[in-house]
């Protein structure tokens, strides 16, 4: 971050976060996207699955709110568990993940970001591991939807990892008060959206 103004970078990141929040679609669980290759299909999956994108943005913001020294542990945990979970989806041991659980996690993450709580490292790691497991197991490639499931899963891995690593780079540099509040407001929006979606799920 030596070559550009930090506030400009943060502004870009916030605008893109909001723009990405405006664009979620219904869960598609790796159905093929017309005109896109297997890798691109996987690449777009976390970005077009509302629960995944909410969790990834929330976790990115949460990671940025914690001291940088913790980043390597939390992100390392997430990436490891995500890798294992994605590989598990190619076996018969895969467990179906309810979208309710995904949005519950998004709600928790949003509240933690809004409250700006400094969590113990072990709690952070458990949270990131849970997120990695849920996102990975919820990214099952539908049989016959793509030619190469591993290529699609690689796309998902790259996309989720990039998003989670990218956001803390900006939020770590949020030194001004209004920037920190902006991050907390984004967290409260994530929590609010997750809460409303959960209410839709539980509606009779």
């Amino acid at each position: 971050m030596t070559y550009m103004n930090r506030s400009s970078a943060l502004r870009c990141a916030l605008i893109c976060s909001v723009a990405l929040l405006l664009l979620p679609l219904t869960a598609m669980a790796h159905t093929s996207i017309a005109g896109a290759g297997d890798f691109v299909t996987g690449l777009l999956n976390p970005l077009t699955t509302p629960g995944h994108i909410l969790i990834l943005i929330g976790l990115g913001l949460l990671a940025g709110q914690h001291p940088p020294v913790q980043l390597k542990y939390t992100i390392g945990t997430f990436v490891s568990v995500l890798t294992i979970s994605l590989l598990l989806t190619t076996t018969s041991y895969v467990v179906a993940v309810s979208s309710t659980v995904i949005f519950c996690l998004a709600l928790v993450v949003g509240i933690l970001v809004a409250l700006e709580l400094q969590l113990f490292l072990i709690i952070c790691c458990v949270l990131f591991a849970t997120a990695g497991a849920l996102i990975g197991l919820d990214s099952v490639v539908e049989a016959g939807a793509v030619q190469s499931p591993f290529t699609t899963l690689a796309g998902t891995w790259v996309s989720a990892t990039f998003l989670l690593v990218d956001i803390p780079i900006y939020t770590c540099n949020a030194n001004k008060k209004w920037m920190k509040i902006g991050i907390r407001v984004t967290g409260s929006w994530i929590a609010a959206i997750a809460m409303l979606v959960l209410a839709f799920h539980f509606r009779k």
């Binding site: 008060k177 209004w178 509040i181 907390r184 409260s188 929590a191 959206i193 809460m195 409303l196 959960l198």
Partner: peptide
């Protein structure tokens, strides 16, 4: 700066009750 953090979350609780 804090009120805009509180409002959406509490409003969502009300929204959930309404839904």
């Amino acid at each position: 700066l804090v009120l805009p953090v509180i409002f959406p979350m509490v409003m969502a609780v009300g929204g959930a009750i309404g839904i």
